[in-house]
């Protein structure tokens, strides 16, 4: 892993992007890395644009806000358009298939994945979209081992939902092709 990831997760309130960022940060901690997670709180978390940030680093992390995002997950058009403007040069962007690639964003940097559809149709529960996304992100960026990621998920889900979340992780990972993963690995 390179020195520092600055990751931004954006969507609308209720899509679970905050939990996705928390799980990535938890997995990082389990993997022995430093992680800081923060989010936009308040009315945004109840229906407007919701934004969460996770910084992962081998070094100590001081400033807790993302300044040069090296990764963006966007699940709504509004959030994609808004945050596509604030990316590091070599950033990777993951968009749900339902979204148009924001104007001015180099398409070669974008991974389009059917996160929302996969949650609904393959996993069978729309609310698992964030876990599907987490699976896809980890496969694309190769951040953590599957065990560390699963433990990260486990610490944040209600008892009795482990199977469906495990399935969501796997379905998410399956959305990323080897070529996409290799491209991301080259990029970051």
């Amino acid at each position: 892993m390179s020195k520092r990831y600055e990751m931004r997760f954006a969507g609308s309130g209720g899509q679970g992007v905050i939990l996705a960022s928390v799980i990535i940060a938890e997995a990082a901690v389990i993997a022995g890395l430093n992680a800081v997670q923060s989010q936009a709180y308040g009315p945004e978390a109840r229906g407007g644009v919701s934004k969460a940030e996770t910084i992962i680093s081998r070094d100590k992390i001081w400033y807790s806000k993302v300044t040069r995002p090296s990764f963006l997950l966007a699940l709504t058009q509004a959030s994609a358009d808004k945050y596509a403007k604030e990316l590091a040069e070599d950033a990777v962007v993951m968009l749900d298939e339902s979204l148009a690639i924001p104007a001015g964003l180099d398409p070669s940097r974008v991974i389009v994945v059917p996160v929302l559809r996969t949650a609904k149709e393959k996993v069978g529960k729309a609310f698992t979209a964030n876990i599907v996304a987490v699976g896809a992100i980890n496969r694309a960026l190769r951040l953590f081992s599957d065990e560390d990621l699963l433990e990260g998920v486990r610490r944040h889900i209600p008892a009795g939902t482990e199977d469906i979340n495990r399935k969501a992780l796997a379905e998410g990972a399956a959305l990323i092709t080897d070529a996409q993963a290799a491209a991301c690995a080259r990029r970051i």
Binding site: A25, A28, L33, A35, V36, Q37, S38, Q39, Y41, S64
Partner: peptide
């Protein structure tokens, strides 16, 4: 402050 209160760290 809100920075530390709402921040998560390992």
């Amino acid at each position: 402050d809100e920075i530390v209160g709402h921040m998560r760290e390992g």
